[in-house]
Design a protein around this nucleic acid. Sequence first.
DNA 1: GGGGGCGACGACG
DNA 2: TTCCACGTCGTCGCCCCC
Length: 654
Amino acid sequence: MEKSESTSGDTPQPWQSYHTVFTNAKAGMDGVDKERVQRIVYEMSKGSKYFENEERKEAFTRRKLESMRAQCAMLTAADISNNRTVADRRILELEATRDLTRIWLHVDMDAFYAAVETLSNPMLKGKPMAVGGMSMISTANYEARRFGVRAAMPGFIARKLCPELIFVPVDFKKYTYYSDLTRKVFQKYDPNFMAASLDEAYLDITNVCKQRGITSGEIAEELRTSVYEETGLMCSAGVGPNRLLAKVCSDINKPNGQFILPNDRLAVMTFISSLPIRKIGGIGKVTEHILRDVFGINTCEDMLQKGDFLCALFSRSTADFFLSVALGLGKTETPQVMLRKSISNERTFSATDDEAFLHQKLSDLAEMLSSDMQKEGLLGRTLTLKLKTASFEVRTRAVTLQKYICSSEDILKYASKLLKDELPVSLRLIGLRLSQFNTDMVGAPSETRQKTLTDFLISGVANRKSTSDNSSLGSIVDSHEICSYEDRDLLDGSHLPDLEDKHTISNKVNSPHPKSRQNAVTGLLEADSSSVEFRCNSLDEVNKRANLLDDEAVSSSNQGELLLWVNDYKCSLCGFELPLGFVEERQEHSDFHLAERLQKEESRSETRTLMPRHRFSRKENIGSQSKGKKQKISPKDKGHIPIDMFFVKSCQNF
DNA sequence: GGGGGCGACGACG
DNA sequence: TTCCACGTCGTCGCCCCC
C-alpha cells in the first residue's frame, strides 16, 4: 500500500505513521504527492484532541496486532495442519456455491455532488471545488483530488492542501432530483435495481442482455450514454457475475469508464488473485492493517494461501468472508425486501458541558427523530443515545423499552434519563437512534395502519366481550391493534411490584399508529378488577368506548382517566388513598393491580411465554447498570487483549 | 450453553 | 478566521439469566 512507502530516505518521519481515512488513494488521485498530503494532514492535526484520540485508537490497534502475532507464533505445526484442512474444506464448500448465471452491473456517478453543482454553475468547471464546509467535505471534483483533497476530509485541511479550493454548500434537494433522473434510466434496464446510495446502484442485467441479444459491455455503454443524455452527468460502470465484483470493476476505469469481467471462473480467479485487499468493499483501514501486518496478506490470492491462519484466528463468519472474497464470490440474488433496521439523528457542535444546552440539543434531536419515525410510520423500542466527548471518545447508551415509541415526548423522556447518567460531561456530539421496530408496521403505508374509530370500537368491543366472561387478560392483550397497556416509566420501574408481569403484558402489545397517538387521550378502564388502558383520538371516543363496555361502575372526575377511584380518592380494590392530583401515581397504582392480576392469570396458564427475568432487573437499575458497565475494566485498559478479541467485520455486500 | 441486551468498533458513501 | 460529519448496518465480546 502506498501509504507505507517512504520517499524521504531511511529516517521515518512522524507523519508517515499517521493514517486517516482520507490518506488512502481514491479514484482520480493517482498523481497525488502522497508524501506532501500526509505531511500536511499530520501537521494540521498534530496536538489536537482529534489527533490524540486517533493515537489512542492506533495504540489499541497496535496492541491487537501484537496479540494476534503472538497467537500466530503459538500455533503448532499440528494446529496449522488442522486449520489447513478446515480452510480447504471451507474453500470447497464455498466454491460449490459459486453462481455464474447472473450478470450484475454496478453504476457509480463520478464525483456526483460536485458534478451536480458544476451543472448548475458552469463557472465551477475546471476549477478545484469541494462540496461541504470547513468542518467536512462530502465530495471533491477531480481537479481538487489532484491536490489530495477528497471526501471525508475536513475543509480546513483541504484548503491548506489547495488554497484556491472553492467550497460549495451541500444541497441534498438538488442531488436527490438528479439521482431520481438517473434511477429512471436504471429502471429501464432492471426494474428491481438496488440503489446503494444517491449516486450508486446495482442492476441485474441478465434478462436485458438475453432479451436484446447484446453483451453486458454494450448495455453498460448504452446505460452510461443514456444517463449522460438525461442528466448531463457522467458515470462509471462495472460488470461482473456478482455485486461484489461489479462494485470492484466500476472503480477500475473511473471516471467515465467501464470494466467488464466475464462470467467465467478462470477470468474471475485471474482478476481477483492480484487484487489488493483494500479494493474489496468491507475491508477498510483497520482490517487491511491487520491482514497485512499480521499475516502478510496484500492480495486476494494471499488470502487464499493464508486460509489456515485466517481460520485459526478469526471467527467462522469472518474467515468465511475472507475466503469468499479470495474466491471472487459475492451475492447474486436480488433481495425481495430490504427493511430498515434503525433510524437515527446526530448533530455535532462546539464542545460544551452546559447542561441546559445539551438538553436543548437532545430535545431538538428527539423532535427530528420523532418526525422521521412518523414520516416512515415506524415505532421502535430500543433507544440509543450516542455521545462524543470533547476528547472524541464515542459512547453509546441504550435502553430497550417494553413499549414501542415514536413521539418526541417519549423519546426525550428516555433519552434524558440516559443522558443524565453521563453528566457532568463535555460533549461535541449527541445522537439518538431508535431500533427494534414493530415489524407489523415496517414498510406498510401509514394510512393503512391507522385504525379508524370504527375499527377501534368494533374490535375493541368484540375483544372485550370475548374476554370479559373469564376476565382473561391474556386474551385482551392479544388484541394488540386496539388496546395498549401503557407501560409506565420503566427506567424508574422500581415502583412496580412485579416487573416481570408488567413486561409480559406490554411485550405483547403494540402501540397505536403514530398519527393516532399524536392527539391521543389516555384512558384507563377498570373492569373485573383488571385495568386496561387504551387510547382514543378524542375525549368523545374515550367516553363512547367506556359506555360501550357496559361494565361495572366507572367513575372519574378526570375525563381522560376512568379508573375506579371511590369518591375520586380511594382505590376500590385495596382502599389505597390517592388524591386526584396524583395522576402518575394513580396510573402506577393501577399498573400494580394489573400486574397482580396478571400474576394470577399466569399461575393458571403455563403456555404463555415469559421474557427473561434479568431484563427487568436491568431496567429497574438502568442508571446503576450503565454505571456498572462503565466501571467495567475493558481489556484494553488492562493492557492486554484476550485471544478472541478481534472485530474484523464481514461484509454485507459480498 | 443459548439468547437477548448492551457497548464498542469497523466500514461505506 | 474557520479546526475532523452524518446515517446506517454489521460483528464481536461481555454480562446476565434461565
